[in-house]
Amino acid sequence: MDLELLKQLNIERAARRAAVLVTDLDNGSGRLVLEGESISGELGSTVERGFRSGKSATVEADGRSYFLNVHVPPARLVVIGAVHISQALAPMARIAGLDIRVIDPRTAFASQERFSNVELLAEWPDEVLEQQPLDAYTALAAVTHDPKIDDFPLKAALDAGCFYVGALGSRKTHAKRVERLKELGLSDDQISRIASPIGLDIGAASPREIAVAILAEIIDALRKRQVTDR
């Protein structure tokens, strides 16, 4: 293993960026592929599959044998709003393998009593996100219904390229939100990435069912995301 490759890989991992270390098992040579880089041929499509699945594997490609060590940061979910939906979403997300954090400046909502065993921050989202910025391996769901709380983190999530950005609200509410986000300088393309109405269309009615719909939509976004030519 080339020492410079290892150093570069460690930098990528520390920065929560995905990378695949490709080792040619016939001659021992290595190559580091960063997410978003595209490689031609059969090897390219297997590397792309690796980024998407997060699974390391020995593969045959273009007549050679390679080992792909896939380093993908663990997916995180940031929920804005310590509401009823979030109470159901938090344990479900954890079961599905996502690290979850709930942020809500309203202390009546963000109480440990309502959210036991969940990382809960009773602070304004802008303050939290300044300390712990969002990234491409983070999903953000804004569910407070309150523009004062939701708008800033939605903009931050779109700017950071979060793999999923969802916002609770009716079509009418969302139309108003779109106008506000445009005033904040976001482009139509960026705004169109927001999943709204939030959640897969499974006819969810109760807060718990909406949590299921949101979680399913997040997994869909994670596993089907574009990993090349971004």
């Binding site: 020492l3 290892l6 150093k7 460690n10 520390a14 940061p73 663990p74």
Partner: peptide, 18 residues
């Protein structure tokens, strides 16, 4: 990344040893 604790991560250790 399997471990948030860098001191336990083999690839971090390898770089340090080197």
């Amino acid at each position: 990344m399997e471990s948030a604790d860098e001191t336990l991560d083999p690839l971090t250790i390898a770089e340090r040893w080197s």
